[in-house]
């Protein structure tokens, strides 16, 4: 018998297992039978405490892990956002700068149309390195057709004239330079004088007769005499007048230039060829 059992043990074990499983299924399929349910409950009860612990630990681990991941994500997002903010700030700065430049250039172009002569826009690339002169360097020169004595303006008013030209840059003498002299007229009274620079940065209007009608606030324009500056370019505004009583023939007028020389970035060079025909009392000769 034992030998028989041993010989067919494989089939026997399999048959028993299958039969038991079949019986369990059959018992459970029959409603109202509790054997299968009790067996299931016993098996479940034997494992449920472990399950509870494992599930709880797993949940805790998962929560900690997720929070860690979230933290890393937030940190990464934070870095990305910081970088984005930095880039956007830089872009905003650039765009603001571009808009301002565009506005300035637009004013210059409007002026270009107004002066009725060919003009070239130039960028200011340097200022005078001493305190004795008032001049600027611009980034265009002979390569763009620039010549000496060409007038330089901004949308606000007259800047000066070209005094030195190289292949790719030019030096512009400002109207505030002590050696500068520009033929001007008082817009309201049409009185004619010469605007000369001074060491302090203001402009003095010379050779205005004592009887000429000049008041504070009067606009001073180029007179067109001298052949360098076209007529009608705003130059300055009168800020102080005085009539000497010591027998001098001319008034002492001080004016503030319209152009702000401390903030010059772009200027326009008027390519009107300097004329040698018109000259006003020898005050504005080409140097």
């Amino acid at each position: 018998m034992t030998r028989l059992l041993l010989r067919y043990r494989r089939t026997l074990v399999l048959s028993t297992a299958l039969l038991l499983a079949f019986v369990l299924m059959t018992l459970q399929a029959r409603s109202g039978n509790s054997v299968a349910l009790i067996t299931k409950q016993i098996l479940l009860t034997s494992i449920s405490p472990f399950l509870r612990v494992v599930t709880k630990s797993f949940d805790i681990t998962a929560t900690v892990w997720n929070e860690y991941i979230d933290l890393r994500r937030v940190r990464r997002d934070n870095q990305l956002l910081r970088e984005e903010v930095r880039q956007l700030r830089a872009e905003v700065g650039e765009q603001r700068e571009t808009a301002l430049e565009r506005a300035r250039l637009s004013h210059l172009l409007q002026l270009d149309n107004r002066v009725g002569t060919e003009a070239v826009i130039a960028r200011v690339i340097g200022k005078d390195t001493t305190n004795w002169f008032r001049s600027i360097l611009i980034d265009i020169g002979a390569n763009r057709g620039i010549q000496r004595h060409m007038a330089v303006v901004t949308s606000e008013g007259l800047v000066g004239r070209v005094v030195d030209v190289t292949a790719s840059s030019s030096r512009v003498q400002l109207i505030t330079d002590p050696e500068s002299a520009v033929g001007v007229l008082i817009q309201r009274s049409r009185a004619i004088g010469v605007a000369a620079g001074s060491q302090v940065g203001a402009i003095q209007i010379k050779y205005l007769p004592v009887m000429a009608d000049v008041a504070v606030g009067d606009r001073i324009m180029t007179s067109g005499m001298g052949g360098i500056f076209p007529k009608g370019i705003p130059v300055a505004k009168v800020i102080q007048t005085s009539r000497p009583t010591n027998g001098t023939l001319f008034q002492l007028i001080e004016a503030q230039p319209y152009a702000d020389f401390s903030r010059l970035e772009e200027v326009m060079v008027l390519k009107r060829p300097p004329s040698s025909g018109l000259s006003w009392a020898g005050e504005e000769p080409p140097p």
Binding site: L14, A17, L18, L20, A21, F22, V23, L24, M25, Q28, A29, A36, L37, T39, K40
Partner: peptide, 10 residues
Amino acid sequence: PLGLNAFTLS
């Protein structure tokens, strides 16, 4: 049902 997987896995 109890026995289903027991049968299969046996």
